[in-house]
């Protein structure tokens, strides 16, 4: 399977007054055609920065891409100029954001916002673009698309707006869709519909999807491959079924255990103690050492950062002897 996106050793840092924040540290990930790849992590883990830096969407300065490559259809996204990136953004790579309430302009009709990428990237005339817009709304399951095109965002509910955002992202038939917590701001019953819609469209159109989320349950539902990030680094990466059946890294296991739904009532909830480390003063060894309870803390590396190691075919894990369940193969 050829990779649509191949990120190698991406390093992003933010240079602030309080020092250098290493937001993303040597992250590599591959997205195959038609694949859904999840990036899971808590806020501050670097999952969003990873994707935003690919599209040139982090403010520079203070942000700085320190190294790595991101190959996308023969182009290295990290080396493109802003102008070249603009051509890629919104036409070959699209994004959906978390909050459908703020990502639409309240003063413009849904229709004119929806067809904007078409007019911009494909140079369609107004009538043709409008027709494609109606088709796009129909595709994401919005009833009466012709009248809906003429309405303003406030006339849409949250779930409907997210559908519009998805329609807008897919209207140019991109090769890659980056979805940043697309269901977090939605109600549970709507969440499910939106997830189903993304899954369905992805299958029909064969798009590759990068799914950023903090919600393991969502990942479990939609992703083929899961990357778990902690403190700016990948700690584990595997096929979803494999990861959920045999989570190897202590952080992944701790995350799974802390889902309230999986716990018995009456017992205290399992918690990961403490807080994620400050990214401007990262410990020299395993970043999870201070909080880790599922593994053997005493064995954690303290002198150097554990490298990623493939411990089973396609299953990569940060090779910290204290964190990896069942020890490391030698």
């Amino acid at each position: 399977m050829s990779a649509v996106l191949d990120v190698k050793d991406l390093q992003v840092s933010f240079h602030t007054r309080n020092g250098v924040v290493r937001a993303v540290d040597r992250v590599s990930l591959k997205v195959g055609a038609g694949q859904t790849v999840g990036i899971v992590g808590e806020s501050g883990s670097g999952k969003s920065v990873t994707c935003y830096s690919l599209l040139g969407l982090i403010p520079q300065p203070p942000g700085r891409i320190e190294g790595g490559t991101a190959m996308f259809g023969g182009l290295d996204l990290l080396k493109l100029s802003e102008k070249e990136l603009q051509k890629v953004r919104g036409s070959r790579i699209s994004m959906i954001f978390q909050d459908p309430m703020t990502s639409l302009n309240p003063y413009l009709k849904i229709g004119s916002q929806l067809v904007e990428p078409l007019r911009l990237h494909e140079g369609l005339d107004k009538a043709a673009a409008w027709k494609r817009g109606i088709a796009a709304l129909k595709e994401v399951g919005i009833p009466e698309p012709t009248t809906r095109m003429e309405q303003y965002p406030h006339e849409f509910s949250g779930g409907m707006r997210q559908r519009v955002m998805i329609a807008m992202a897919l209207i140019t038939r991109p090769e890659l869709l980056i979805a940043d917590e697309p269901t977090t701001a939605l109600d549970v019953t709507i969440q499910q519909q939106v997830l189903d819609l993304i899954k369905d469209l992805q299958k029909r159109l064969g798009i590759a999807v990068v799914f950023i989320t903090h919600d393991l349950a969502v990942v479990h539902e939609v992703c083929d491959v899961v990357n778990v990030m902690y403190a700016g680094r990948l700690v584990e990466s595997a096929a979803a079924a494999d990861l959920f059946a045999h989570p190897r890294h202590a952080y992944t296991r701790a995350l799974m255990r802390s889902i309230p739904a999986l716990q018995k009532k009456g017992e205290p909830l399992y918690t990961i103690p403490g807080l994620p480390p400050d990214l401007s003063y990262l410990p020299s060894g395993c970043a999870f050492r201070a909080r880790q309870t599922p593994g053997r803390q005493a064995l954690c590396l303290i002198d150097r950062q554990p490298p990623l190691q493939e411990i089973a075919p396609g299953h990569w894990v940060q090779a910290c002897p204290g964190c990896v369940e069942g020890g490391l193969p030698l």
Binding site: E42, S43, D187, V188, H214, D215, L216, A254, L255, S258, I259, P260, P268, L269, Y270, T271, I272, P273, L275
Partner: peptide, 29 residues
């Protein structure tokens, strides 16, 4: 965040027992 959520839930539960609080817990989750 998920890992912090459970810390807070545990805290609320512990406090409600210790202080015999009556609690209305509003959530979509």
């Amino acid at each position: 965040d998920v890992s912090i959520q459970s810390q807070i839930i545990n805290l609320l539960l512990k406090l409600s027992r210790e202080l015999q609080l009556t609690m209305l817990f509003v959530s979509h989750d």
